[in-house]
C-alpha cells in the first residue's frame, strides 16, 4: 500500500516536471511565433489584435512591401559588410595576440606588460562619451569603420583563445621548431589546425555581436542612409512603441497613422533574424560547448 502510494507520488512528480518543462518551452516559443504570425497577417487583423500564433487573413503583402523598401536592403548590406570586416579583423588580431600571450613569461619577455594592458582594458573603460569623441576626432563618423574599428580587439575572446593555446601539447611545438619552423609557421601549421572548435566559438561571438549591435550605428551614424540593419529597425519601431507606452492603444494608434505598419515592421524583424536562425545550429554546437568549457574547466 505504502509502496503503491510512493510510486503514485513519484509518477505525479514526474508528470509535474514534464509539465513545467513544456510550459517553459512554450512560454519562450509562443511570443516568437506571435511576431512571425503578425508578419503574415492582414493589417486589419493586426490592428484588431486578433493575431495569436496563427496568421489571420494570411497574406504575403508585408514581405512584398519589404522587397520594395530600398533602405531596408541598404542597411542589410551595411550589416553584412560590417559582419565580414569585423570578423576578419577580429580573428586576425585574436590569433596574433593570443599566441604570444600563451607563452610563459620566460619564453616571451614583456608578456606581463601586454597582459596587464589587456586585463585593465577589460576591467575599466573610458565610457560612452570619451569613446564617441575619439571616434569622431578620427573622422570615422558615418563610415563603416566606426562600426568595425572600436571593437577590433575583443578582449574576452583573446583571453579565451590564449587559454586554449596553453592547452596545446608543448611537444608538438618543440618538434616543429627542431624541424626549423619559425614562430609564425608554428602558429599557422601546429596551433591553428587543432584549434578549430575554439576559433569557431570566438568567430561566432564576433558574428552575433556585430549583427545584433544597434548602438554603434545609433551614435556614430548621423544619416539614416548609413544605418546598419538593427539601428534602422530600431529607428522605425521606437516611435510606435513610445505611443503605445503612453497609453494609446493600438486601435487609436492605427487611426492616428492611417494604416497599420505593425505587420510590415514584424516582417522586417523576421527577415533581420533569418541570418542568425540559419547559423543557429552552429551556434548551438560551438558557442554552447565553448561556454561550458570556458566556465567549468579552467
Amino acid at each position: 500500500m505504502n509502496l503503491q502510494n510512493k510510486s503514485l507520488a513519484a509518477k505525479i512528480g514526474k508528470a509535474l516536471i514534464y509539465l513545467i518543462i513544456i510550459f517553459l518551452g512554450l512560454v519562450t516559443l509562443l511570443p516568437l511565433l506571435n511576431i512571425v504570425a503578425i508578419s503574415l497577417s492582414s493589417s486589419g487583423a493586426v490592428t484588431a489584435n486578433a493575431v495569436g500564433i496563427i496568421p489571420v487573413n494570411f497574406t504575403l503583402e508585408p514581405y512584398k512591401m519589404l522587397v520594395d523598401d530600398p533602405q531596408f536592403w541598404r542597411s542589410f548590406g551595411i550589416s553584412v559588410q560590417r559582419v565580414f570586416l569585423s570578423l576578419g579583423l577580429n580573428m586576425i588580431l585574436i590569433i596574433l595576440m593570443a599566441y604570444p600571450l600563451s607563452k610563459r613569461k620566460s619564453e616571451f619577455k614583456g608578456r606581463s606588460i601586454y597582459m596587464n594592458l589587456l586585463i585593465f582594458a577589460m576591467l575599466f573603460n573610458g565610457g560612452m562619451i570619451p569613446t564617441y569623441l575619439v571616434v569622431r576626432n578620427l573622422g570615422l563618423l558615418n563610415t563603416i569603420w566606426s562600426l568595425v574599428l572600436p571593437s577590433a580587439v575583443p578582449v574576452f575572446s583573446v583571453i579565451l583563445m590564449m587559454n586554449f593555446f596553453r592547452g596545446v601539447p608543448k611537444a608538438l611545438e618543440e618538434a616543429a621548431i627542431i624541424d626549423g619552423a619559425t614562430p609564425m609557421q608554428v602558429l599557422l601549421r601546429v596551433y591553428l589546425p587543432i584549434s578549430i572548435p575554439s576559433l569557431a566559438t570566438v568567430a561566432l561571438f564576433s558574428i552575433v555581436g556585430s549583427w545584433n549591435d544597434f548602438f554603434s550605428g545609433l551614435i556614430y551614424m548621423t544619416r539614416t542612409s548609413n544605418y546598419p540593419l538593427m539601428t534602422y529597425i530600431q529607428s522605425l519601431t521606437v516611435d510606435i512603441q513610445q505611443m503605445i507606452q503612453q497609453g494609446i492603444n493600438s486601435t487609436n494608434l492605427s487611426e492616428l497613422m492611417g494604416v497599420s505598419d505593425r505587420n510590415l515592421n514584424a516582417a522586417k524583424i523576421v527577415v533581420s533574424s533569418i541570418p542568425l536562425i540559419l547559423i543557429y545550429p552552429l551556434l548551438q554546437k560551438y558557442f554552447i560547448t565553448g561556454i561550458v568549457v570556458g566556465s567549468v574547466k579552467e
Binding site: M97, L101, G126, P130, V158, M184
Partner: peptide, 19 residues
C-alpha cells in the same frame, strides 16, 4: 605579432580613458 592588437587597444580603449 602582438603589436597591431596593442595599437588598436591604445587608440580605442586607452585614449578614451585619458578623455
Amino acid at each position: 605579432m602582438i603589436l597591431p592588437g596593442i595599437i588598436f587597444l591604445l587608440i580605442f580603449n586607452y585614449t578614451p580613458m585619458f578623455g
